[in-house]
Write a protein that binds this DNA or RNA. Structure first.
Lengths: 314, 314
DNA sequence: TATGGTATGTAGCGATACTACATGGAGGGG
DNA sequence: CCCCTCCATGTAGTATCGCTACATACCATA
């Protein structure tokens, strides 16, 4: 809390933020002519990438040094650095926060916007994910006798996905969809059990109940949420994958995507630290699954795809 | 096929490719001194972003014009453009294709690599997705009397996720997990039914059988695959979301992520074109679901999250 | 070895990003 | 009300950068 206020005051740039976010946030703190520069950039960020300093100065009707000062104000080393950072921000695409979805959009626009939004969201999750928490979670999962994944709705999908990765985790995994089944499983946890409780808001009542039951039964609880919340407070290890908020009806929920990636990280991390024998077994399973899947059409492209098995996928 | 060969010969740069991919692909076709430049860039792409032309020339022990020619050879307008494109490529992160995952990686490295790989993959899907096919798929779904989603393994997860979005689709949706159930549902399809068949490889036998059954029953078949394949050939409308191949055991499968995003695009596209009444109903449902979810802890952060409902998520 | 074409480097120019300094104007105290 | 101070903004100047036209070195073939 204190930290956030401090940031707002000093206008300190946070490396977890993207350049456009920083410009938007700093806008009111900028001097008037710098605001004109910001306006030009925000108005057409894509075009701004190819601006030269003189060009940008002219477009904003200010002098070149003002552009320089603007760059410094938004946390860039210079104009060059500004352009590079802008380019990088743009590579991810504009989150829907900046360009909203409307009924007039063509299918191409729609697809681009949604992909952009998703990628931006994953980028945010990537920047804000706590490496220590991930480390703890992996260690904890490595010592688990059995793992329980719980979640409802979209978070339930993540739980199902995690359960499908059980060969990587190397111990019995379950992910019941039914609340009662989840509760029973949680209650029956032992001290070496690990429960991964998933909820984007971290407020879902049923998930909280199940997580609490697991904790009381002595299990280690790992939470996977989109923000700090009751669930993350309750958990022994809190994984927070921050995404962009879903601002309106048509903004697809990107939280599940980030959750899935975090699960990928956990599963891969655990598998990497298991014994070579286990690794070999996984490898064998994958290659056999792949060739099985090719059964119908080995002649067509068997050679191509034989080398590209994937985890329990189709 | 012919097209691909042509590209390889002329070394023509494809805008659907990222800069680093292009450099790697062009490497053998480059002149010797240009290869030295490429080597420097590939060796440390992140550092290369801040190189000046003179600096890069010195590091590669070549003259500045050689660097220029290198830029032109990899499809850039000039050195400036090269730097921007490089920066954009880097913003997505290096796909695991370039920096593989090893047991020595720390948790932080691991998380970064997997996120990078995922984001790069989504970027690839974004670039290669056929907008026309998306348009057709949306139109077709809008005219559907009912929708059936099918898939196995990771693709089954996508089907489940799609089914959860049925309020957006506005018509009855089902996504049975059992093969027989899927087959039955497909066989019972009517002429206004739409079946979305999901399989990354596009070879999964059961999925092919179900898709074929749906087709015979007169339904429109939309395929969602990772490449052109028997399934996409069979389908009326083929959606192809290309991701990076899963090169080894530890590379997480990113195809499911791309599939989920494509489903987001479809659901959003359909919802956008439905009547305002339908939209209003969806909005109402979402806000009520959100407040329901907050039931436990309204006092804590009810104000914050009341405005951020998400589709049937938790 | 001679000769063609290609690969690479040299020289030079305009433009660029950046710096030091000067000017303008708003706000506060006498 | 005027003057002074300080901050915002612009002007002038410079080193460097990216780029182009031209020259030389290299290699292959005859």
């Amino acid at each position: 809390m204190t930290l956030e206020v401090e940031q707002a005051e000093t206008g300190a740039e946070d490396s977890t933020d993207t350049l456009l976010e920083r410009i938007t946030r700093q806008l009111p703190h900028l001097r008037r002519s710098e605001q004109r520069v910001a306006a030009i950039v925000l108005d057409n960020p894509v075009g701004a990438v190819h601006f030269t300093m003189a060009g940008l100065a002219e477009a904003a009707e200010v002098s070149e040094p003002t552009v320089m000062r603007f760059c410094a104000s938004v946390g860039c080393e210079g104009f060059q650095d500004f352009k590079i950072q802008l380019a990088q921000t743009l590579a991810l695409g504009l989150p829907v926060t900046h360009s909203s979805i409307s009924a007039e959009d063509s299918s191409a626009d729609l697809a681009e916007k949604i992909f952009d939004h998703t990628i931006s969201s994953l980028d945010r999750a990537r920047r804000t994910l706590d490496a220590d928490a991930v480390e703890h979670a992996i260690t904890s999962l490595l010592g688990a006798s059995d793992i329980l994944f719980v979640g409802f709705g979209a978070s339930g999908i993540i739980a199902q996905d995690a359960q499908q990765k059980f060969p990587l985790f190397g111990v019995p995994c379950q992910a019941p969809e039914d609340f009662h089944q989840q509760f029973i499983a949680a209650t029956m946890s032992g001290p070496r059990s690990v429960t991964v409780a998933i909820s984007n808001t971290g407020h879902t009542e049923q998930t909280l109940i199940v997580a609490e039951a697991a904790r009381k039964a002595g299990a280690t609880v790992i939470s996977l949420t989109g923000r700090t919340s009751p669930l993350s407070d309750l958990a022994d290890i809190a994984l927070v994958a921050r995404t962009f908020e879903d601002t309106d009806v048509y903004t697809p929920s990107t939280s599940r995507l980030a959750g899935l990636v975090v699960v990928d990280v956990l599963a891969t991390g655990v598998a990497l630290r298991r014994t070579p024998e286990h690794t070999a077994a996984v490898r064998r399973m994958k290659s056999e699954l792949a060739s099985m899947r090719q059964g119908v059409a080995v002649a067509v492209d068997g050679a191509e795809s034989a080398g590209t098995p994937e985890a329990a996928a189709s």
